[in-house]
Computed example of a mutant assay.
Amino acid sequence: MNTRYMKKMISMALLIAAMTMPATAQQNVPTAVIDSTDVDALYAQNLLKPGEKAPNFSLPDYQGKKYNLYQDTKTYKVIEFWASWCPDCRRDLPKMNEIVNTYRTPHFYGISFDTNSAAWQKCYSETFKGGNIVELCELKKWKESQVSKDYHISWLPTYYILTPDNKVEFATVSIDKLAQKLEELKSKMNE
C-alpha cells in the first residue's frame, strides 16, 4: 500500500470521527467523562480544599452594586459558579432555587460567567423565585475572569460552602452533593 493512499485514509477516518463526536457545553472534556455519572471525581479534585482561605472578591450585581465576600462574616456562605449558556447549569438551577428557599441561614451568592447581561438577567429572573440569592457577574468570559482562576473553576456549575471566617468547608461540581452537605451542616449553621 502506498504512503499517500494510507495518509488519505487516516485523514478521512479522523474527519469522520471528529464529525460524529458529541458536542458539550464544557471545554476540553473527554467524552468518557461526560458520560460518567460522577464528574465530581475529576473536576472537584483541583478545587480549593477544606480549611483553605477562600479568595476575596468584589463583584457587581445586575444593578452595579458591588459585593465584597469578606464583608460577610456572620454566617456560612454558598457560592454557585454558573452561566446561562451552560446546559448543566440550567438543569441544576431549579434544584438550586429549592436549596436557596430551604436553607435561609447561609448567604447565597451566584457568580455568573455570562457576557450578555440580558441573557444572564433573564435566566436569573426566570429561575429564582422568592429565594435569597445575590447574583453577581463581571460580564467576562469564564476563562478570563480572575474569580474563576482564584477558585480553580474547570467545570460549570461549581459550588463552594464557606465558613463565616471565609474558609472552604466544602467544594463540589454536584448539586446533589451540595444539598447533602448542607443538610449535614444544618445544625452547625444555625448555632
Rank of each mutant, 00 (worst) to 15 (best):
F108D: 14
A83G: 10
Y70I: 08
S125Q: 10
F113T: 02
K77M: 12
L93A: 06
S117P: 06
A54N: 12
F128S: 02
F128W: 08
K129W: 11
Y124D: 00
C86I: 01
E126Y: 06
N116K: 08
Q71L: 06
G131V: 12
L48Y: 00
L93V: 05
K49G: 08
A119L: 04
S58K: 15
R90Q: 13
Y109Q: 07
C86T: 04
L69V: 12
T73G: 05
V100W: 06
C137H: 01
E126M: 06
Q121H: 13
D61G: 01
I79C: 13
P60D: 11
L59E: 13
A83C: 08
G130S: 06
F81G: 03
Y109V: 15
A83W: 01
A119P: 02
F113D: 03
T127M: 13
G51D: 15
E126P: 02
S125C: 10
E144F: 14
G110M: 04
N101W: 01
V78H: 12
R91D: 10
P50F: 04
K53A: 11
E138L: 11
P60Y: 01
T75C: 05
P60I: 02
T102A: 15
Q146E: 15
S112T: 01
P55Q: 02
C89R: 02
F81R: 14
F57M: 13
E126H: 02
Y109D: 09
L47R: 14
L69M: 04
